[in-house]
Design a protein around this nucleic acid. Sequence first.
DNA 1: CTGAAAGCGCTTACAG
DNA 2: CTGAAAGCGCTTACAG
Lengths: 335, 335
Amino acid sequence: MISIREVAKMAGVSPATVSRVMNGTAKVNAEKRNRVLRVIEETGFKPNEAARALYRRSARIIGIIVPNIDNPFFNEMAKAIEEEAYQNDYRLTLCNSDNDAKKELHNIELLKRMNADGIILLTNEEQLFHKVKELRIPVVVMDREVTDFQDFIYIEADHYEGGRISAQLLFEQGCKKVVHMRGPGNLSSSRKRFDGYLDICQKYHITPHYIDCGYHYEDGLQAATQILEKFPDADGIVASNDMVALAVYKTLVQNEKQVPKDIQLVGFDNIRLSEIVTPELTTVEQPIDAMGRQAVRSLINRINRTETKTNHTFPVRIIERETTKSCSESHCSNR
Amino acid sequence: MISIREVAKMAGVSPATVSRVMNGTAKVNAEKRNRVLRVIEETGFKPNEAARALYRRSARIIGIIVPNIDNPFFNEMAKAIEEEAYQNDYRLTLCNSDNDAKKELHNIELLKRMNADGIILLTNEEQLFHKVKELRIPVVVMDREVTDFQDFIYIEADHYEGGRISAQLLFEQGCKKVVHMRGPGNLSSSRKRFDGYLDICQKYHITPHYIDCGYHYEDGLQAATQILEKFPDADGIVASNDMVALAVYKTLVQNEKQVPKDIQLVGFDNIRLSEIVTPELTTVEQPIDAMGRQAVRSLINRINRTETKTNHTFPVRIIERETTKSCSESHCSNR
DNA sequence: CTGAAAGCGCTTACAG
DNA sequence: CTGAAAGCGCTTACAG
């Protein structure tokens, strides 16, 4: 590819001048500017980004670290992030960590060395937070409330409310015994949802029931079997998320339970899948796209020091579909 | 972060020497080497990658351009690619193009300007091929046979065979009227599968039936309705892929058809989802992970000029699950 | 307004 | 074996 020196030569000016017209960074005599513009046009010259990244200490790269891009939730998030990054002229570097702390650490360091501008963390390693802080690279953490690191921005959905409304729906639909599948205890999302569940039980004067479960499909398979053993008379289940709900559904069908007739089921996230499967999943929507976009915007604001720290909590809402009874009634809000 | 000059100063050597011990690129006096090593150790010095990228004209970045990361097939592919890239010490830059040719073109150009080393294309724009060629950046094209561009490496599954075995399975399971959902005509994968289907029909002396359909879930919804109208007596359907199969399944259920009792259904790809839904999807497996990894390896070979061009066609195989009758029989190969 | 110079942080001929 | 110098391709003080 052609370089700025050659463009300068062809236009009869210095490289500095070419740089200035290209970046609009200083006034340039109209005639010279036009000559430069013409040469740029003719040659199709585009500045080398590696050189810029070096000088500016900014590669216009945002790194994203996800535990598993294969997981629809992260995946949809990544899509939103990529789109928003692109619109702001940032590139996205993807690290799929598989919860491998070493890989995550390595990637963060690499990002710093590449002069990346910021990092979006969809992972859950305290270690990472320390590293990021030490490296002084702007960061936003998603789907997790970060309290120990004062200067981190975090973005999450209203999990407490999600825990409330998912159980509330089931009670309203006539469930007497609702089992809440509690997510990993080290995640704020799990704890908040559980709190929401407890509070709504208290409000309805109902004894809470729960079981522990991870956020993966496989976790759901295991936990569902446990539920069947431990709570054979359960008539409602709040799954830890949509993937888990799919596992629960499969297990229920295998055990000849009908959904929603015998047991009603609510997921969490409203990943695209939840609408694609049959029956369609009733679930609590997290506004994944909006959250992903906000993450990028917040990060860019932080990069540009154009905004003081603001965390965001996004509203959730129930999407009633086919795994709860409501949907066969008239007041179904199925979209 | 600390720079090579400071390390040099601390170790009492020149930056060149630090570079040499760091890269093992020339012999260095043992004592000096140790001093350098110690300083590196103590300071945690890591070379700046932007500077390296500039000098070496290589950022150790691989770009990947996918139409839609949100689509499980691309998504699983991206995961495999990321993993293999990481193991070979390359970074992955992600572009989700949404089939936006402008965005794709822009990203390819950007990759070049970032001194990226190669590109993996999971998209289908002739324009892109021209651009990539003009920019002389190593490329591998996936899921598509590229014949007009002699020097491109391509990697795909054996779609012809896939078209054969999917229909063959249905015939063997007793289907009399199998409808093949033919994918987009501009894709070699679609054409080859269709050819396979035609050939197997001929072999069995059966009249072929088909309908056109895209590769997206929404396409499947439409096409399924058409099938029901056009071929009310169909008893087997080969969907253009797993996402489409899910759409077909939903439509069939809505029309009170039982699967596999009334109609048997086969997908394509064997995305993880196909095993997660209920009933589990019978499908033709593409070895997505192996293909993704091979793409990276082939690309790296090309980058290093260490291998002459080799295209790869990966074998496919039937995975019998619950949407075909076989699975209830004794010879079920459900894994 | 504009060019020459210095510099971003490395790496590699080039001498010695 | 090793350092000083030049260079990767830009950008931005600094002079004028």
